[in-house]
Amino acid sequence: MSEFRDDSEFFNSLFELELDNVFNPYKHICGFHDVENSPYVRRQNIQLFFESARSAKVSTLWIGRDLGYRGGRRTGLPLTDEGNLNRLARVMNESRFRQATRGAIWPERTARVVWDMLAEINQPVFLWNVFPYHPHGPNSEMENRSHTSRERFITAGFLKYVLDTLKPDTIVSIGRDAHTAVNSIGYNCIPVRHPSYGGQTDFIGAIAKIYNLRLLAKKATQLDLF
């Protein structure tokens, strides 16, 4: 049973949590790239994504590890950078996603690989992270670190609520940490290698197998995604 009674309680908790060396994109303002209403835009983005996933009755969830400083920190959306907002809008049939930062768009490598695959699948998929914030080092916000076991424990209720609410038929865990976290709350998932650090070919091949995309499997050894 989830610790949150409804969406309102879920989102209020998600938006208000404070942790050391963690950027909460739904509450905090980045002094480098944000404007005053950036947290509000990111709140709208994640709520629209969740609502559109429910309306579309998504059957698949992809779970990553943390928000990255080039992706979800800026958009408020798991595994999605600003350059892929239009792809998200098309797949979810929702046109109201917005850029929350000023200046140039920053591409994120992981988001690019993920969205190249989602474009091939061309069906609604909900994306989430084990740790739904951007964990960073004590001396630099513009870096990524892995969340700690304590941070995972504190935020485990968010992941459970998403899974309990959307009730997917298939859960794809991207990377070892995501696989461990999903299993720890009682859900089965299909593990795939994370596309970073040379894992993009294995990631593409695994996704192709899950979705029975034969031509895509062949492309796994030909794409230069970076």
Rank of each mutant, 00 (worst) to 15 (best):
residue 108 E to K: 02
residue 108 E to A: 12
residue 111 A to W: 01
residue 113 V to K: 06
residue 114 V to I: 09
residue 114 V to S: 13
residue 114 V to L: 05
residue 114 V to E: 15
residue 114 V to K: 09
residue 115 W to E: 15
residue 116 D to G: 03
residue 116 D to E: 00
residue 116 D to P: 04
residue 117 M to H: 10
residue 118 L to M: 12
residue 118 L to S: 09
residue 118 L to C: 11
residue 119 A to P: 00
residue 119 A to V: 08
residue 119 A to F: 15
residue 120 E to V: 11
residue 121 I to H: 13
residue 124 P to Y: 14
residue 124 P to V: 12
residue 125 V to F: 10
residue 125 V to L: 06
residue 127 L to C: 12
residue 128 W to C: 08
residue 128 W to T: 15
residue 130 V to K: 05
residue 131 F to H: 12
residue 133 Y to H: 07
residue 133 Y to F: 15
residue 134 H to M: 08
residue 134 H to Y: 15
residue 135 P to C: 10
residue 136 H to R: 04
residue 137 G to W: 10
residue 137 G to N: 08
residue 138 P to C: 04
residue 138 P to T: 05
residue 139 N to Q: 13
residue 140 S to T: 09
residue 140 S to P: 05
residue 143 E to S: 08
residue 143 E to L: 05
residue 144 N to M: 03
residue 145 R to K: 04
residue 145 R to Q: 08
residue 145 R to D: 12
residue 146 S to F: 03
residue 146 S to H: 04
residue 147 H to F: 09
residue 148 T to K: 01
residue 148 T to C: 04
residue 150 R to F: 15
residue 151 E to F: 00
residue 151 E to A: 03
residue 152 R to T: 14
residue 154 I to T: 10
residue 156 A to L: 05
residue 156 A to W: 10
residue 156 A to F: 11
residue 156 A to P: 00
residue 158 F to M: 01
residue 159 L to K: 01
residue 159 L to G: 15
residue 160 K to G: 08
residue 160 K to H: 14
residue 160 K to D: 08
residue 161 Y to R: 00
residue 161 Y to K: 02
residue 161 Y to T: 06
residue 162 V to Q: 03
residue 163 L to T: 08
residue 164 D to K: 00
residue 165 T to I: 06
residue 165 T to Q: 06
residue 166 L to C: 07
residue 167 K to I: 10
residue 168 P to K: 09
residue 168 P to T: 05
residue 168 P to C: 04
residue 168 P to H: 12
residue 168 P to D: 04
residue 168 P to V: 01
residue 172 V to K: 01
residue 175 G to M: 02
residue 176 R to Y: 06
residue 177 D to S: 03
residue 177 D to W: 06
residue 179 H to K: 01
residue 179 H to Q: 04
residue 180 T to L: 03
residue 180 T to F: 08
residue 181 A to G: 07
residue 182 V to M: 10
residue 183 N to V: 09
residue 183 N to E: 13
residue 184 S to Q: 06
residue 186 G to C: 01
residue 188 N to Q: 11
residue 189 C to N: 13
residue 189 C to E: 02
residue 189 C to G: 08
residue 191 P to Y: 13
residue 191 P to L: 02
residue 191 P to I: 04
residue 192 V to T: 06
residue 193 R to V: 13
residue 193 R to F: 14
residue 194 H to K: 01
residue 195 P to L: 02
residue 195 P to I: 05
residue 195 P to Q: 08
residue 198 G to S: 08
